[in-house]
Design a protein around this nucleic acid. Structure first.
Length: 860
RNA sequence: GCCCGGAUGGCGGAACGGUAGACGCUCCAGACUUAAAAUUUGGUUUCCGAAAGGAAGUGCGGGUUCGAGUCCCGCUCCGGGCACCA
């Protein structure tokens, strides 16, 4: 079964065992539901043209170790991989070459698959998924269809980030510093019709769910900040001109209402034209124009200085009847709250800055402590200047004052409690070819009603419509039976440039005769097919963003070929959600938030049992180049997995990646460091293989281990197991090195000990471990042998080195038996020659004795 | 500006509040070899010392403690995230 080589020929060994695993389907997951399950998931890669980056095998090796460890612990392990294969680079490549993005994507996947297989990962390759496969995205479309039917998807004409270079719309989070995250192109605001998912409907649950997740705190905090829940009140300010009605504002500090000296509305606020008086007309117009022309880059750059213009109108402060001027300023955003605020310069630094700039009055309504000489006072303190004949907040702390004034406002119907979120609805459409087509057609109102009059055609909870050229169009979801809706072939991948995808340029696909019950379609250029129900329809030309396919892929692995469901009910119940999810921290908000949203929705539908998709999450740290800088082609500091494997083998690469430092840490790649683990593997080989290639003669069933080896065996089993469970692979490896160093010095070692160590090594360096296991006559695969156990009783030392301290300074040590009483320990210390000079003539004030560790004598 | 995380030998990094520097890299010296590589033995925080040993030492300044890399307070620097969210 083993190879024939006499020395550590890692190429031969690794190729041999990889083909063994493949032939024997060693890591094929069974659906034997009698065994405990363990589902360990990697973030599946986007198969880029540049191949695997060294960061991929880092996280993937970690999960592979865990997977192999769980196999050995008798678990039914699910450890799958797949491809997040829709994406912009493939489309850009298609635009450039004219070749179908599928071809490029397939070639890249082939390369990725080859590279991952060369790393010897224990994936169940029969469960591979590919987000671009129609059998896969059928279910992405199915989930979207459900979202649509449940009123969680809608279209909206909204200002979005338009990138003229990419000729597409980008989501807020895809725009970094006023440029596209992909390609770093300039972007601008444009109003376009877009599909939007109502993720804000889940804001509270997305926030609340975080607290029970075993995730890095930093990631939880980032999601928390992103969701951005804040409690406050909406308050109505009557406008001075009663004909104009009232202005609704949101504040988190209703307690400071008495300190409101002016108000601000966003430049885009719908009331601006009405509020603007004739005298101010020109100034307001000019200001609005400047604000609209500002790119976000400028807006953030100019964040320091506040600007604004007086509208000419005033409002009445509901608590004291004061006239307050209404200003227009771009430090208030239309997209948050009501797009209007009451400004309280005494308690808000932004308002303070603005008031100073425009010489507006400032009233403090919270008493700052004596000696406070800053601007706005935002801390807690007693309220002042906050009373009218009906209510007084004076003397109350912030929380109590908020409560009191809110009750008062609600009683007078002047305002109400309100919770606001920073989280916005999710912009879900892209003007691209290479994405999932929306399973949606647009029909006119009359046809919509005709279609819905058929009992087979389900009516969405909330109709989705839009108006164009004076006509209203309504969205109809394709029936489930018509899924998947495939991508049509196109002649050009070039976007139309007017905000529509290349799909809009295929008349026979986009304009159709449509049958709302069956979802069948025929080109509108042809004759209307026979039958009463055929209506004219226009397909949705947008496609879904790349996040769509990655929102639910972990569910498809459970049952990847199922033609009639996301996964079989029984399998969903058995496998549930991943027990461990490992991937980069760059997905802390986007992917992980979107996937949680979809999962919660699927939970509501009854598709999945658990409310959260990823109970335990871990981020592997970034591997930097040798120079300590981020790896990049331009810096020329990129480590290539292929060449490392060629030189040292996969086992050495895997071991080194794990030995580099803590998994979560950012750490530099050191090409010389790999020599160390390579030597270690060679040393293991030499200890296990004799000159004839058979088992090393010093290992025998008859041999007795030295007490040191015996103890170290148990110690190592304990440490390696504990470390794997805690994902501390670097210290697990040093423990194995310690063990092998001891092995090397031992004259003989028992077969049992030797085999147990191989099992510990197997998750880390599986090829070498399998090889040595086989050479010692054990049946493969080593990953099926039950994980060795340690005896805690063997870990207890009979003797321990007791350290003597005088006044906290180490002055000597001595080997003593473990249960030594304190009096004897003190005796030993007094007799110790090195302690004599420090104890002579001194009286011992205090004795601290930690048995087996330390004896500290405090003298004067 | 706000919120996190980090700082330990020449380097990557170890250290339940209990001998700081495990393990590995680098470097030095010895063995083996005609020689080199590989292997192997020993050394490798700094300073004083021939040695025994002593002193200092975990970014900086304080504190708690018999004892602090570890806990607390105040800084510096580096990295990451957010950024007018009312």
């Amino acid at each position: 079964m083993a190879t024939e080589c006499k020395d550590y020929s890692f190429q031969k060994i690794e190729a041999h065992w990889q083909s063994f695993w493949e032939t024997n389907q060693t890591f094929r997951t069974s659906d034997d539901r009698s065994r405990p399950k363990y589902y360990v998931l990697d973030m599946f890669p986007y198969p880029s043209g540049t191949g695997l980056h060294i960061g991929h095998p880092e996280g993937y090796t970690a999960t592979d170790i865990v997977a192999r460890y769980r196999w050995a612990r008798g678990c039914n392990v699910l450890h799958p991989i797949g491809w997040d294969a829709f994406g912009l680079p493939a489309e850009q490549h298609a635009v450039k070459t004219g070749a179908h993005p599928r071809l490029n994507t397939e070639a890249n996947i082939k390369n990725f698959r080859r590279q991952l297989k060369a790393l010897g990962f224990s994936y169940d390759w029969s469960r591979e998924v590919n987000t671009t496969d129609p059998d896969y995205f059928k279910w992405t479309q199915w989930i979207f269809r459900q979202l649509f039917q449940h009123g969680l998807a809608y279209v909206d004409e909204r200002p979005v980030w338009w990138c003229s270079e990419l000729k597409t719309v980008l989501a807020n989070e895809e725009v970094v510093d006023g440029r596209s995250e992909v390609g770093h192109h300039p972007v601008e605001r444009r109003n376009l019709r877009q599909w939007v998912l109502r993720i804000t409907a889940y804001a509270d649950r997305l926030l609340a769910g975080l607290k029970d997740l075993d995730w890095p705190d930093s990631t939880k905090r980032m999601q928390e900040a992103w969701i951005g829940r804040s409690e406050g009140a909406e308050v109505l300010f009557q406008l001075e001109d009663p004909a104009l009605g009232s202005l609704r504002i949101f504040t988190t500090r209703p307690d400071t209402l008495f300190g409101c000296t002016y108000m601000v509305v966003a430049p885009e606020h719908p009331l601006v034209p009405a509020l603007t008086t004739a005298v101010q007309q020109e100034a307001v117009e000019a200001y609005r124009k400047t604000a609209s022309r500002k790119s976000d880059l400028e807006r953030t750059d100019l964040a320091k200085e506040k600007s604004g213009v007086f509208s000419g109108s005033c409002a009445i402060n509901p608590v004291n009847g004061q006239r307050v001027p209404i200003w227009i300023a771009d430090y208030v955003l239309m997209g948050y709250g009501t797009g209007a605020i009451m400004a309280v310069p005494g308690q808000d630094q932004r308002d303070w800055d603005f008031a100073k700039a425009y010489a507006l009055p400032i009233i403090r309504t919270v008493q700052p402590p004596a000696g406070f000489n800053g601007g706005a006072f935002v801390e807690d303190g007693p309220a002042i200047n906050s009373a009218n004949p009906e209510i007084s907040l004076d003397g109350l702390g912030v929380a109590a004052a908020k409560e009191k004034i809110t009750i008062w406002l609600e009683g007078k119907r002047l305002g109400e409690r309100k919770v606001n979120f920073k989280l916005r609805d999710w912009l879900f459409s892209r003007q691209r070819y290479w994405g999932e087509p929306f399973p949606i057609v647009w029909v006119d109102e009359a046809d919509y009603e005709r279609a819905l009059s058929c009992p087979e055609v389900a009516r969405p909870k909330v109709p989705v419509t839009f108006r164009r050229d004076g006509r209203t169009f309504c969205a109809l979801a394709l029936p489930e039976g018509a899924l998947p809706l495939r991508l049509p072939e196109v002649t050009s991948y070039q976007p139309t440039g007017n905000g529509e995808s290349p799909l809009a340029a295929i008349p026979d696909w986009i304009d159709v005769w449509y049958h709302p019950v069956t979802g069948e379609a025929a080109p509108a250029s042809g004759p209307r097919p026979e039958g009463p129900l055929w209506i004219r329809a226009k397909r949705e030309s947008n496609t879904m963003p790349q996040w769509a396919g990655s929102c639910w892929y972990y569910l498809r692995y459970l049952d990847p070929r199922n033609p009639s469901a996301i996964s079989d009910r029984k399998l969903l119940d058995y496998w549930g959600v991943p027990d461990l999810y490992v991937g980069g921290a760059e997905h802390a908000v986007l992917h992980l938030l979107y996937a949680r949203f979809w999962h919660m929705f699927l939970h509501d539908l009854g598709v999945v049992r658990e409310p959260e998709p990823f109970r335990k999450l871990f981020h592997q740290g970034i591997i930097l180049g040798e120079d300590g800088e981020k790896m990049s082609k331009s810096r020329g500091n990129v480590a290539n997995p292929d060449s490392v494997i060629g030189e040292y083998g996969t086992d050495a690469l895997r071991l080194y990646l794990m030995f580099l430092g803590p998994l979560e840490a950012m750490k530099p790649w050191n090409p010389r460091g790999i020599e160390g683990v390579f030597r270690f593997l060679n040393k293991v080989w030499r200890e296990y293989v004799g000159e004839d290639g058979g088992p090393h003669p010093k290992i025998s069933a008859a041999a007795t281990d030295t007490p040191e080896i015996e103890r170290l065996r148990h110690e190592t089993i304990r440490k390696v197991g504990d470390d794997i469970e805690a994902l501390r692979f670097n210290t697990a490896i040093s423990q194995m090195m310690i063990f092998v160093n001891a092995l090397q010095k031992a004259p003989a070692v028992s077969r049992g000990t030797a085999l147990a160590f191989l099992q510990l090594l197997a998750p880390f360096a599986p090829h070498l471990a399998e090889e040595l296991w086989a050479r010692h006559g054990e049946p493969p695969s080593i990953s099926r042998a039950p994980w060795p156990v340690y005896d805690p009783a063997r870990l207890v030392l009979e003797q321990a080195k007791l350290v003597f301290q005088v006044n906290g300074k180490v002055r000597g040590d001595q080997l003593v038996r473990v249960g030594l009483p304190q009096s004897d320990a003190v005796e030993f210390a007094r007799a110790h020659p090195r302690l004599k000079p420090y104890l002579e003539g001194k009286s011992v004030k205090k004795i601290i004795y930690v048995p087996g560790r330390i004896l500290n004598l405090v003298v004067d």
